[in-house]
Simulated scan of single mutants.
Amino acid sequence: MIKAKNIHKSYGELEVLKGVDLHIEKSEIVAIVGPSGAGKTTLLQILGTLDKPSSSKSLYINDTDIQVLNDKALSKFRNKHIGFIFQFHQLLPEFTAIENVCIPGFIANRQKKEVEIEAAEILNFLGLSDRIHHKPNELSGGEQQRVAVARALINKPDVIFADEPSGNLDTISSRNLHELFFTLRDQFQQTFVIVTHNQELADMADRKVEMKDGIII
């Protein structure tokens, strides 16, 4: 699913990633852990095509060579094959839950009715059927994050990248979100790559990858 070899990333003279190799299988849930400043989020952003490495030997996602894609092709690939979940849900406050979920589908030029039906189905699956017309400020933190999960799922991506997805949630909401990831993997066979400081979530993952000082140890 994901094959990254010799990934380097520097910002000026600061070398953040120092030659990272990582291979992730389809439907695997991988937790990336390590202290702050280890390079976890930088690696996640590069794997998720939100940032580019300073240098690398190769980066493939689902057998596609990411490094040969131009910006337009990369944006199209990202929209179709990749979903994102962030610590702060990044929902648009002026739109309802279902409208937020539909946005990636509309960007992909899918049929409006088809996207709306699928969005409602996903929100129902996530236990939010009675909240679909509520705006983010009318939802709890856990509900907002589930809407963000639904948005990440709407285009049926091959892989979902999550950056501290439960970092802003209380204990119960965090546990519910963690269990949801495994339910989704079993239901839809998606791959999850999760950066987290939450030890409980990391221990639940199929594999735990530890980073320190820009390398995997």
Rank of each mutant, 00 (worst) to 15 (best):
K3Y: 08
K3S: 11
K5D: 01
H8C: 06
G12A: 12
E13I: 09
L17S: 05
D21T: 10
L22C: 05
E25L: 09
K26A: 12
K26T: 15
V30K: 03
A31L: 09
G34C: 14
P35G: 13
G37L: 15
T41Q: 11
I46T: 06
G48T: 10
P53N: 06
S55K: 08
K57N: 05
S58V: 03
N62E: 09
D65V: 03
D71F: 05
L74G: 04
L74W: 02
R78S: 03
I82D: 00
H89Q: 09
L92M: 11
A97W: 08
I98C: 12
E99C: 14
N100Q: 10
V101M: 12
C102G: 15
I103T: 13
V115T: 10
A120P: 00
E121T: 13
I122D: 01
L123W: 07
L126G: 03
L128S: 06
R131T: 05
H134R: 15
K135R: 14
N137R: 07
N137F: 13
E138C: 08
R151I: 14
L153V: 09
K156Q: 13
K156C: 12
V159W: 08
E164H: 00
P165T: 04
S166I: 13
S166C: 04
N168D: 11
T171F: 07
S173L: 09
S173C: 02
N176L: 14
N176Y: 01
L180Q: 04
F182P: 01
R185D: 01
Q189I: 05
T191S: 11
F192M: 04
I194C: 08
N198W: 09
L201A: 13
L201E: 08
A205T: 06
V209M: 01
M211E: 15
G214P: 14
G214T: 13
